[in-house]
Amino acid sequence: MDQFKHILDTFFFAIFPYVTIFTFFMVTIQRYRSKAYTYSSLSSQFLENKQHFWGMVPFHYGIISVLLAHFIWFLVPETVLWWNSIPVRLYVMEVGMFIFGLMTFIGLLNIILRRRNNALAKIVTSKADWVVLGFLTVQVVTGLYTAYFYRWGSSWFAASLTPYLWSVIKFSPDLTYITAMPFMVKAHIVSAYSIILLFPFTRLVHALVVPNPYLWRKSQVVRWNWNRKTIRNPKNNS
C-alpha cells in the first residue's frame, strides 16, 4: 500500500510536472508559429450579452488575483512569511484571497450555467471548453476547501510548497513535504499541472497573448509594404 502510494506520488509530483511543462512550451510555441490564427479568446459576448458580465468579470478578476498571489508566494516566500508574522496582516491576506477565490467560483458557475442553458452560447461551446471548465472547477473547489480547512495557506505554502516547486524547477524533485499533504491539497496540485497541460490544446492560450504592448505603443498603427525612405531613392538604384 505504502509502495503504491509512493509510486503514485512519484508519478504525479516528480514525473507529471515535467510532462506538462515540457508539453506546454513545445506545443504553445509550435502552435503560435504554425497556427497563430487559432490564438483567440473566442469571445461569445456577441451572441449572449446578459449573463456574460456575471461570468467573465468575477471569474477573471478572481483567477488573475489568485494566480498572482500564488506567484508571489512562490517567488518571495520570505517576504510573505514576514508579512504574515503579524496576525492582522495574515487575516487580511487570507480573507482577501478567499474572497477572490469565491469570486472565481461564482464567475465559473455563471460561465457554466450560461454555456449550459443559453441556446446561442451553446453553439460556440466545444468539448474542449467543457474539459477546461471541468478542470477549473476542480481547481477552484479544491483551492477553496484547502484555504478553509487547512489554515493558513499563505504561510504554509511559502514554507513547504515553495521549496517543492523550486526543487521541481531545479530538476531534483524533493517530495518530502508533499507526501504528507492531505488529499485535497494533492488534488489541487495535480489539477494545476493538468491545467498547464490543457493550455496549449484549448482556448486557454488566450491568457498567454495578453496585449501588454498596447500600454506603450502609439495609438495609430501603420504598416508599410516597403521602406518608403529607400524605395524610390535614386541612390539605391545605382
Binding site: V209, P211, P213, Y214, R217, S219, Q220, V221, V222, R223, W224, N225, W226, R228
Partner: peptide, 13 residues
Amino acid sequence: ASCPSGALYKRGE
C-alpha cells in the same frame, strides 16, 4: 487606435 493587439492597421502606401 483601440485594438489592444495591434491587429488593425492602416496600409502605409
